[in-house]
Computed example of a mutant assay.
Amino acid sequence: MTDTMTPHALRRGALISLEGGEGAGKTTVLVALRARLEARGHAVVGTREPGGTPAGEAIRALLLDPAQPLVPNTELLLMFASRAQLVETLVEPALARGDMVLADRFTDASFAYQGGGRGLPMGLIADLERAFVGRMPDFTLLLDLDVQAGLARARSRGAPADRIEREKDEFFERVRGAYRARAAAQPQRIGVVDASQPVEAVVQDACAALDAFLDRWNAP
């Protein structure tokens, strides 16, 4: 684990995360981003949050189980337990090898879901980030989508809703607001893509934003 929170402190590899609310189309975009990274000659390690390690996947199952009535602080601490395991055992070793780590969500999700959605203090989340993660993503793409449109997409899949997906629409409005506020505060790190567009346009915009980051990252 590095002791700095500054993007670009590690030039070995880069941590790239993809964020967005329910139904934003992260799965499709992740496939395209991985292909773009590989086409540019990078080795890619893919992961997801919560999860990404055997311990993290066990925590994920608990977090998403609709039968588990977790209080917000328990949810937050479980998220960071999974994340700490991921950083120590997968992210940092991959970066040290020079690989690109492509993450389906990272700590920005806790600021959005547990901070915005649950109303937990953002300062508490930042303290946990510093203590147990020690780094931010080098680049984050946020797929931004109207909450009603995203929930309609997610519900049309027909899969049973997990514990978080069962929250009320107001919860997801707060999540979106927190994501957008975070992106506005950190425009150099977080790129926003309009996910209401046709999927081809979303993928094109996401790959263009990734290319722009890689050009900056590789610049002398």
Results as ranks from 00 to 15, higher is better:
Ala159Trp: 09
Phe80Val: 08
Gly119Lys: 05
Ala183Phe: 06
Ala209Gln: 15
Gln197Phe: 07
Val29His: 11
Ala149Pro: 00
Ala32Leu: 03
Glu75Tyr: 11
Ala94Glu: 11
Ala58Tyr: 04
Gly150Leu: 08
Arg118Lys: 12
Val44Met: 13
Ala131Asn: 01
Asp65Ser: 05
Ala206Gln: 09
Asp127Arg: 11
Asp127Ala: 15
Ser196Glu: 15
Gly41Leu: 11
Glu92Val: 14
Pro50Gln: 00
Thr2Cys: 00
Gln68Tyr: 08
Pro66Trp: 10
Gly56Leu: 13
Gln204Ile: 04
Leu102His: 06
Glu92Asn: 09
Ile16Lys: 03
Asp162Val: 11
Val91Leu: 06
Ala61Phe: 09
Leu10Thr: 08
Leu10Lys: 05
Gly98Pro: 14
Ala61Glu: 15
Tyr113Trp: 04
Pro66Lys: 06
Asp146Ala: 15
Ala61Ser: 11
Gly134Arg: 01
Glu173Thr: 05
Asp104Tyr: 06
Thr4Pro: 00
Asp211Leu: 07
Arg155Thr: 13
Leu77Thr: 08
Leu102Gln: 07
Ala39Lys: 11
Val101Lys: 02
Val147Phe: 01
Ala32His: 02
Thr28Asn: 06
Ala131Cys: 04
Pro93Tyr: 05
Ile164Ser: 12
Thr2Val: 01
Asp146Cys: 11
Gly25Met: 15
Asp108Ile: 06
His42Gln: 09
Asp104Glu: 08
Arg163Gly: 04
Pro7Ile: 03
Leu78Ser: 15
Arg135Leu: 10
